[in-house]
Nucleic acid binder design. Structure first.
Lengths: 213, 213
DNA sequence: GGCAGTGTAGTCAAACTTGACTAGTGACCT
DNA sequence: AGGTCACTAGTCAAGTTTGACTACACTGCC
């Protein structure tokens, strides 16, 4: 699964109705251009594709108020909402090697309710532990790990990453259990989109940390 | 950078001369189908593309000895070798979010010499630390991190991952400094490819750990 | 002797991603 | 008054990735 669909669906859903540029802006606000492949091309493509698949409903709209080409507004459909929630759950569960998918899911986890998220994250930890056991078991030759030579470092790296992931997930579980954040059905949600005219503190600019990579 | 070019160049280089299926097999032997996008389509595509770009030289060969369609053998060119080494160095250095690139580089690091690898890895650690400082500095609002709400967990996740990456890199540095593995110019290299007729202990099969994800 | 399974080798269309590009509007500067 | 810059909004061609598919040869076995 690529993160783009989850991001776009989630962004449209939060707005109720959004055009491409709005989605693009939200993703930038969340820093998604830094940790995912949320380029303009991908976003517009995803919008069109998902409209074609019935996950979004496209409204052709007159030329924009702010100049530029005519824009299309999108609304999420029922099918789209179902797909969104399913992608979101899977992203929280699956210990894929794609960190961008998990990041996207973190941004949207509050669309589920607290207990469900806790359950998914606990399952995540269990899955990682199982995977770890299976890998170390399978890839360790009878005559000791030295047989693998430097190739063994690849496995070592993955195991180390998995451990770090499990540990971090455990920390998140504890924060959530301790009452952090506002989940679905718990009152006024955290506002994660830019309202009309609000300045974006994280807009693309020269002061960005990722430029120093 | 995607890992596929590095993987394919490295595989062809180790063989001296290889056809697509051989490359495909090597990558499977290294477990690359598990942690990278090394699907047949990508491999054949990369071979053709890189031949077109002059990184590989293609020899059209008579129908294979073992049935099936005629096959093409590839040899790495000088330009290809230069590109390979450059990709390899960059993969060891760059703290991209793509773990597959680093994994591939680990498999090939012994093509460089020990001191160079140590230098690159040390630089890697420094870069990660700088990135971490820049990120925590930039994304922490004056009025405390609580302002970010659950969105802050995204940053938290990346920082945690970066820390784990730095720590792991440090461990690798110490193992290498301690004399582990055989690097370029240090005598008989570790054999990382399957020789003709050798059985592949990690061939695709039902017993694979990743299936239990 | 037939045939199911496995191994060898690669192709193909469809989907996705990338990076550069178009094009209009308003703001600021000189 | 004119030029440059940034912002809004999106398109496009080229490149890459995916997953399913083709096609042949050998091997074992009932």
């Amino acid at each position: 699964m690529s993160a783009i669909r989850l991001l776009v669906l989630g962004a449209v859903r939060q707005h109720g109705r959004a055009h491409g540029y709005q989605v693009r802006n939200d993703l930038e606000y969340w820093g998604a251009h830094e940790w995912s492949n949320a380029k303009p091309g991908s976003i517009y493509h995803a919008l069109k594709q998902m409209a074609k698949q019935g996950l979004l409903h496209a409204h052709e709209i007159a030329p924009s108020t702010a100049g530029g080409p005519p824009r299309t507004e999108y609304e999420i459909t029922e099918k789209g909402t179902a797909e969104y929630l399913s992608l979101l759950r899977e992203a929280l569960l699956a210990h894929d090697q794609k960190p961008d998918v998990l990041s996207a899911a973190l941004g949207f986890m509050v669309d589920l309710d607290r207990e469900e998220v806790l359950g998914l994250l606990q399952q995540r930890v269990r899955t990682i532990r199982q995977w770890r056991a299976a890998v170390t078991d399978h890839y360790t030759p009878e005559d000791g790990p030295a047989q693998l030579g430097h190739i063994g470092e690849i496995m070592n790296f993955w195991v180390h990453s998995a451990d770090a992931g499990a540990e971090w997930t455990q920390g998140l579980i504890e924060r959530i259990r301790g009452g952090a954040y506002t989940f679905a059905g718990e009152g006024e949600p955290f506002v994660g989109v830019l309202t009309e005219g609000q300045e974006n503190p994280y807009a693309t600019g020269q002061r960005h940390p990722e430029d120093s990579r």
